[in-house]
Amino acid sequence: MSLNQIEQAQGLRVRSTQDLAGGLFMILLAVGAFVFSWDLPAGTLRQLGPGMLPKAFAVICGALGLMLALASLRYHGEQLSGWSWKGIFFALGGALLFGLTIRGFEVNGFLARVIAAGLMGAAATIILSYLSPLNNPLSLKLGHRNAATSIFALLFLIALILYPVTTISVPALGLLVSGPLLIFFSGLAADDRKPKELLIFAVAMSLGCILLFKYALSLPIPLAPWLLGI
């Protein structure tokens, strides 16, 4: 946000998409917080209720967001830049996988069906694309990606309709499996990934973590309940 007199005279237009988006984001959060704390009694200034501070902070956040959004119309600043979708998918997905498998989980009902279909569709797409001349869908080249997406969508729908699963339960896999799973999956996010190297690293690093956290620091983290019982 720097002040520039000449630019200032040229009327209002979006000069910093980043600031504008930031302002709108703050307003959105503020409105959300305000709505969800609506039912909490604010009390009076003499006798603060539980809702007073959340509402007050929400109002201030909203006001600051508004100022930021308005400032983006007058002052120059940064522009929005691209996202690392691959990072979000693989790195955060890896963490989710770790959280889901470390102590196991169970999903029931329609959600289970969706997840099962999704997994089957994804597995089949990957296998198919390795067999086909399309090559590896993980390379995410645009043409290939579109083809892979449509294959996946088709398989997903077929599996969703034909495969009547009611419960998915994954046993507690423990650090012995969840660790390499996390490292390998998240490692795919790097542009210069090398699957073989990553695989070796995943195993070695997990063993190192097991020695460090489980034995040296004796944290109560499951190791491999399905195999070793601990």
Partner: peptide, 18 residues
């Protein structure tokens, strides 16, 4: 970095879980 960040992630995940 391609090896560094998975290592950071597993440290974080084990830590958070613990």
């Amino acid at each position: 970095y391609r090896l560094m960040f998975p290592a950071i992630l597993i440290f974080c995940c084990i830590g958070i879980y613990s």
